[in-house]
Design a protein around this nucleic acid. Structure first.
Lengths: 150, 150
DNA sequence: CTTGACCCCGTACCGACTACGGGTTGTCGA
DNA sequence: TCGACAACCCGTAGTCGGTACGGGGTCAAG
């Protein structure tokens, strides 16, 4: 099949397929006489593997590593476990900081009751206060007693 | 003050300060005779404002917009509210997809009990199955009755 | 007079694509 | 058979928010 069909069946963009080829994630296909790329079902499986890993949030280096394990199935799989563990940790850290962010933004949002002008807007006032080193609703100063002068 | 002190007090990198200046987020400072940037306390407030907004996950275009409201405090603040609402939505979407991801990765992780070789590793087998179009533990096919042929 | 800290500028790099521009080939209807 | 248009080729640049590098200037202390 040609690149357009592969991309469609792999649910990604043609440009993305070429990108994976450049990155060495997808095997180089044979070419037709006119230079068009000519893919097999094996290429489609490779592409789906990459896309599946991407949908799990893995980066391209990790996917490259996994492809290495596919090529050498006799290797111990500890590294695979570590890889997934690291990924889970990353996601956890992101979740934690997004939860904090969500709370901060909600708090900030509630300080404005709309239909005012910008100078009276609670959101703007909070952001400006924070910049001046004073307390803001979104980052209440509960850390080590604050930084105020003696 | 010079750029080093500003960066330190604004809790960011010297390069970042120069970057904000290039991006037009931070007003251009006066220069000393030797060409060194010479900042005032007002610059520090600007920088802290930017960093505070960044810590809330806002992008530079949004921060630019907010600076516009600081410059024109008589404008209605609806746009500010929208801006924060959009930010909250973004965070929500990210949280949702990260929650899904977390569950998928945990499920996947539990399919390997370690100390095997890669060909027997449940994680690897799942990923490979998924690429072949079969069911995997991390993406069980429960969506709208599946896509199987009639 | 040299060392080291600080500053200047411009440019390239990160990740994972996405978009663009300019050219060739294939396919279809008129 | 012609012309339109889709699909393909390639290489390069842009996205975002910085970070890092290279090569050089300035200044105070030892």
């Amino acid at each position: 099949m040609r690149i357009g069909e592969l991309a469609q069946r792999g649910e990604c963009d043609v440009e993305t397929v070429r990108f994976y080829e450049r990155e060495g994630l997808l095997d180089r296909p044979a070419r037709e006489a006119n230079g068009y790329r000519c893919y097999t079902d094996a290429h489609l499986v490779q592409l789906k593997f990459i896309r599946h890993c991407r949908s799990l949030g893995m980066g391209l280096p990790d996917i490259r590593a996994l492809r290495g394990f596919q090529a050498n199935p006799e290797l111990a799989c500890d590294e695979i476990n570590h890889l997934i563990d690291r990924q889970i940790e990353r996601i956890h850290r992101q979740l934690d900081s997004l939860h904090v962010l969500e709370r901060q933004l909600h708090t900030l949002r509630e300080t404005c009751c709309a239909n005012q002008n910008a100078s009276q807007c609670g959101i703007m006032r909070n952001l400006t206060r924070a910049a001046a080193g004073e307390d803001c609703s979104c980052h209440p100063s509960d850390r080590k007693g604050g930084m105020q002068k003696p």
